[in-house]
Design a protein around this nucleic acid. Structure first.
Length: 571
RNA sequence: GGGCGCGUGGCCUAGCCAGGAUAUGGCGGCAGCCUCCUAAGCUGCAAGUCAAGGGUUCGAAUCCCUUCGCGCUCGCCA
């Protein structure tokens, strides 16, 4: 248990006892004031009715009955509130001791023995990732990292859509069009290189009846399980995925597993889902096409019909998705789906269908809104898409110029290395910074922000801490609270002590945008400390201050790591 | 039209789920700070009808209702 947790429990216990002393066993709230007037406060207004006294009088009376000890060092009554203060000496000593002994495991919660599958990215393999979709891998990867730190065993997974007209069309194009027939692409990466084939195939299908016939026969063979066509599609999809993986690697998004949609056709599980759903009382038939009536499952309006087979009996995307979710539930205790907001209805229907199938587990969806451009939606047709690869390159390039302008002592290679880490960090940070359900407008200057609330701000604090430690050489670690009494030292320790509960909030409540917010608060506390408190030339206080700097370095590093951002030792 | 989500200083954003004391930060603006550990930093100032209206409450950015604006959605597509 952390000092803060013990503090909170002690406060609750003291207030409970004091209330008992007044002959009252009413419930009360404990809150953290935003303005910093107390570490924890208990508002006495709700007690006024029960005790039939003015809140101010209750607060005063309770205050007189409470004795401070342990982590609770002071209690005051102010305007009907009971304000409690944590003992700074205890906080400093115990927080630093914990970080010094746990090191990079500080804030890592013990294993829960629960497996969580996080499905994210799952972008259709028909083109490169554009910034409109980039929230998905970054949110998914950050959530995976938070959950791991919360003690869950996480498997991050990409569901590869290798079924359907789009991929068949792409496959046809790649297999039948000579290179000379298609436009060139800006990049040699497979995902960019194949797009012109897809575009041309689309065009030809619209213009040429024979092509249309060829493709529709290919599609038919695919859906009846023709292994040759399935393999061809798989091969082309692999090529495309190759390019997507390269992009994901470049921003440190780690996937543990790729699952292919065609698998659920091949192994018959989608078929089983169909058979099983047909037994359900909610099943109906419309010209041979089977559907579920979901009005009893909290789905309103005209959207209550959920179709799961075509009239020729073949399965639909959603049917395969059901088989996929049943599979995920066999492999994990929980399944989280990171989805675009356009999937909301589909996800609701999926959950209802899973319930009908008798699944006891439900997928936990996490939705994000789309990224648009100042001039409106991104559109491939209008050529207004911004590719993630371009954003990364641009951010890295800008970071390079920045590094170059302030460091003339580094080699070209070192500058390039730092620039990459900063550019990529800035991109990731600026995407997770905002709540997923809020819509984002993509602006180059925001996406590559290097000041204030940005990844480079955090990285810079970390680099500064490293720089001090590098110059310090060997020192003896000490968590002697009597040596760390400066206001800025104490504020920094306070920020450090929050890390474990921030991690818990991010993981347990899937509120990952709280992590950037905390990271900024921490880095800011460090920068303030750095500006006013000398470390290397601080005489008797040197070891204690170096210990604090090292602890700050550890927590900054781990915070950045949880955000999937590299913490450079110099920049 | 029905459903879901969003609306917080010029711009971006936290807080909303579990209602409480002067609403969190950042960008931009203005004014300062490098004889000292990296100024991608630090300090200060100006800037707010928490979309609008009503309700519940001792108390509402937070809960409820209505309205407005924006996004998504309502395929035998994936």
């Amino acid at each position: 248990m952390t000092v803060r947790e013990r503090f909170r429990e002690a406060v609750e216990e003291k207030v409970r006892k004091a209330l008992e002393g007044m002959g009252c066993d009413a419930c009360f709230e404990v809150e953290t004031p935003s303005s910093g007037v107390a570490d924890i406060a208990v508002p006495c207004f709700p007690l006024a009715k029960v005790l039939r006294k003015a809140p101010q009088a209750i607060a005063a009376e309770l205050c007189g009955m409470i004795e401070c000890d342990g982590p609770v060092c002071e209690v005051k009554d102010v305007n009907g509130y009971l304000n409690f203060f944590i003992d700074q000496d205890v906080l400093v000593r115990e927080t630093l001791q914990e970080i010094v002994s746990a090191k990079e495991d500080y804030g890592r919660h013990p294993s829960k023995g629960v497996k969580v599958n996080v499905e994210h990215t799952s972008i259709n393999p028909t083109g490169p990732i554009h910034v409109g979709r980039a929230r998905n891998p970054i949110i998914g990867d950050t959530l995976s990292r938070c959950l791991r730190r919360c003690g869950y065993e996480v498997e991050a997974e990409y569901y590869v859509n290798d079924v359907g007209k789009q991929v068949v069309l792409l496959t046809w194009g790649v297999r039948n069009l000579p290179e000379s027939d298609v436009d060139g692409s800006d990049r040699a990466k497979n995902d960019h290189r194949l797009v012109p084939y897809y575009r041309r195939a689309n065009q030809m299908m619209e213009e040429d009846e024979n092509v249309r016939a060829e493709i529709s026969s290919m599609l038919q063979r695919f859906e009846t399980g023709d292994q040759e066509v399935i393999d061809q599609v798989r091969e082309v999809t692999e090529m495309m995925l190759d390019g997507l993986r390269e992009t994901l690697d470049s921003i440190d998004v780690r996937l543990d597993r790729y699952t292919w949609e065609s698998q659920y056709i091949a192994d018959g599980s989608a078929r089983k889902v169909v058979e099983s759903l047909k037994q359900s009382p909610y099943c109906g038939d419309n010209d041979g096409s089977a559907y579920l009536e979901l009005k009893d499952f909290g789905i309103h309006g005209k959207n209550t019909r959920f179709t799961f087979t075509r009239s020729d009996g073949t399965t639909l995307y959603t049917t395969r998705d059901l088989a996929y979710h049943l599979d995920k539930f066999r492999r994990a205790d929980r399944a989280v789906d990171v989805l675009g907001e356009d999937q909301k209805l589909g996800s609701q229907q999926l959950t209802a269908a899973l319930e009908i199938l008798g699944s006891e587990k439900k997928p936990e969806a996490m939705f994000y809104s789309f990224v648009s451009l100042p001039e409106g939606k991104m559109s491939t047709r209008r050529g207004t898409v911004v590719y993630l690869d371009d954003l990364i390159d641009e951010a890295v390039e800008r970071a390079y110029e920045e590094v170059k302008s302030r460091r003339d002592d580094l080699s070209e290679e070192e500058m390039r290395g730092i620039a990459r880490v900063i550019g990529v960090g800035a991109v990731r940070y600026n995407i997770v910074r905002v709540q997923p359900e809020k819509k984002m407008v993509f602006r180059w200057e925001d996406a590559m922000n290097f000041d204030g609330n940005s990844a480079p701000f955090l990285q810079y604090s970390h680099a500064r801490a490293c720089s001090i430690l590098r110059k310090a050489g060997e020192f003896t670690r000490t968590a002697d609270e009597t040596l760390l009494t400066d206001e800025y030292e104490r504020r920094l320790v306070s920020a450090l002590s929050l890390f474990p509960e921030v991690i818990r909030d991010c993981g347990e409540n899937k509120r990952i945008h709280m992590l950037p917010s905390y990271a900024h608060e921490l880095a800011s506390a460090f920068n303030q400390f750095y500006a006013v408190v000398p470390v290397l030339n601080s005489g008797d206080l040197r070891d204690a201050r170096l210990t604090l700097v090292d602890c700050a370095r550890v927590v900054l590093k781990e915070t950045l790591d949880t955000l999937g951002i590299v913490a450079p030792e110099g920049m």
